[in-house]
Design a protein around this nucleic acid. Structure first.
Lengths: 115, 115
DNA sequence: TAACCATATAACAATATACTTATATATTCA
DNA sequence: TGAATATATAAGTATATTGTTATATGGTTA
């Protein structure tokens, strides 16, 4: 017999797995306070666009973020209505701000066209 | 240049990765309130002893738990002095109790010799 | 409509993960 | 000391993960 608590911990583990990658964890921290565009992430992480898309997909499939299309751009932000949102917030607040990465973009003049 | 915040999030991601497995996450929740013996885990998870040992090693290598040998048995418990302990506690308290798994052992009469 | 941009998906390769079985090590006890 | 018990490690295998390049999709604009 599968008890309720077993079910819950089995649902929680994949949430941590998806957070267990430095790219995705940094993405989540960046989205803690703002909506981010795919092309921003591509700049920030210096990683191929498909790779960024695939990371975002995992976060979205886990229900942690939501997407919003605006013209040709897609913006991602935390999915506030997620059943995991309280847990996620309590985790993110214990991680250091990653806003310097956005500021870095400004400085380099590699700020993105879309935003 | 690697900034301090980059370093920290790069250190945090592997912590979530190690929690991102249902066996290890359940182990952590069980150890939240008590010290557990390897053989208990073997019974609870109905998994081979080497597999249990390997999971415990990952938790230990991440600095999340500590071991204490008592005779032929090895007991594991949360590593309270870990730099991650506050984060870990805040996570575990949001997960459902797994104590029913220990109670189940009692009922089945498969309670372990060591404890 | 055609060219162009942003994003997603597909297919693939390299590496990591989580089991398994076999074996080594450490401790107890007869 | 030798057998028994508990745990750890090694080696191998199947599967999962994360990146890549190539291509498809969707929206914009000339």
């Amino acid at each position: 017999m599968i008890t309720k608590t077993e079910f819950q911990i089995e649902k929680a583990a994949p949430i941590f797995k998806v957070l267990g990658d430095k790219t995705r964890l940094t993405m989540m921290k960046l989205m803690e306070n703002q909506t981010c565009c795919v092309c921003e992430f591509v700049e920030i992480f210096q990683m191929s666009q498909p790779s960024i898309s695939q990371h975002l997909r995992k976060l979205r499939d886990a229900g942690l973020i939501k997407e919003e299309r605006k013209g040709q751009w897609v913006f991602y932000s935390l999915h506030q209505e997620s059943e995991w949102h309280a847990l996620i917030e309590s985790i993110l607040e214990q991680l250091p701000s990653q806003e310097d990465k956005l500021i870095e973009l400004e400085k380099n003049g590699t700020r993105i066209t879309c935003c």
